[in-house]
Computed example of a mutant assay.
Amino acid sequence: MKVDPAVQRKLLELADVDAELARVEHRRRTLPELAEVAEAEKAVQAKRDARVASDTTLADLDREVKRQEKEIDAVRAREDRDRGLLAGGTVSAKQMTDLEHELATLQRRQSSLEDDLLELMERREAVGLDGQHAGVELAKAEEALADANRRRDDVLADLDTTQARRDADRVRLVPGFPEPLLGLYERVRRNKGIGAALLRARRCGACRIELDRSAISRIASAAADEVVTCEECGAIMVRTPESGL
């Protein structure tokens, strides 16, 4: 295949564009910010679960406190009624004995219920403090997630800008190449990653392998407009005064 040497040298511009586009795509897939966002999301979910668990426990304790208070009120009401009957002097001796026994039982019951209520209130206070701490930790985790998202979005925006610029460069360059040359370039690029490279100091710029004497002799004897390729990687080798031929 014969192509004007100036057109062949233009392939180096296209190869630079494609190399940067490949780097952009690789960077987009392997951004450390993506892993940071994923970890931050896990942290937020864990803190959110802790907050929900704390809120659920607190709600359960609130219900238990109300139930306990209601039971204490019922015992007190029963005790007030019995004391009222005793004070009224309208009950028989046997009823009085029964009321006094019941009052003693109610007092013991009230004391036990009040002890239980005190324990519940202490537990509720502790859980409430845990809930406040969980809320603070959740807020911190959400802030860290928002920061990770912002940094990821900033990097992606920069990559989008670079890709748009390089896509435009590619659209500008591609029409300048004859179809056979462009077809060869694209086939090699798809298979090997690099379609064309500079032959510098007798070394292929694509695979970095130094050519042997027979390859150098073959290339040196080829016409200036002859398209030459690397025997190792297949990339188009563009010759310039730097090639060392």
Rank of each mutant, 00 (worst) to 15 (best):
K2P: 00
Q8Y: 10
R9H: 09
V17C: 07
D18H: 11
D18E: 13
E20W: 07
L21W: 08
A22G: 12
A22D: 14
R23Y: 05
E25F: 03
R28N: 04
P32E: 04
L34C: 00
E36V: 06
E39C: 02
A40T: 05
R48G: 09
R48F: 04
D49H: 06
R51P: 00
A53Q: 12
S54K: 09
S54G: 15
D55W: 01
D55V: 12
T56N: 10
T57R: 15
L58S: 12
A59N: 10
R63L: 13
K66V: 14
Q68A: 14
D73K: 13
D73M: 07
A74W: 06
V75Q: 05
R76Q: 14
E79I: 11
D80C: 01
L86R: 05
M96L: 05
D98E: 15
E100C: 02
E100L: 14
H101C: 00
H101S: 11
L103M: 10
T105N: 11
Q110W: 07
S111M: 08
S111W: 07
S112K: 13
L117G: 03
E119N: 12
E119W: 02
R124G: 07
A126C: 00
L129T: 11
A134F: 02
A134E: 06
G135L: 04
V136E: 11
E137K: 14
A139P: 01
E143M: 07
A144C: 01
A144K: 13
L145D: 01
A146K: 13
N149D: 03
R152L: 14
D153C: 01
L159G: 03
L159Q: 05
R166Y: 13
R166Q: 10
V171S: 10
G176P: 03
G176I: 03
P180I: 15
P180A: 15
L181Q: 06
L181A: 09
Y185V: 11
E186N: 12
R190T: 14
K192W: 03
I194Y: 04
I194F: 05
G195D: 10
R200I: 14
R202F: 03
R208G: 00
I209C: 01
E210L: 09
R213Y: 02
S214Q: 10
R218D: 08
S221D: 09
S221Q: 11
A222E: 10
A222V: 09
A223N: 08
A223V: 09
E226V: 14
T229H: 07
C230R: 06
C230D: 07
I236K: 07
V238H: 02
T240K: 03
P241F: 10
E242K: 11
S243A: 15
L245C: 06
L245Q: 04
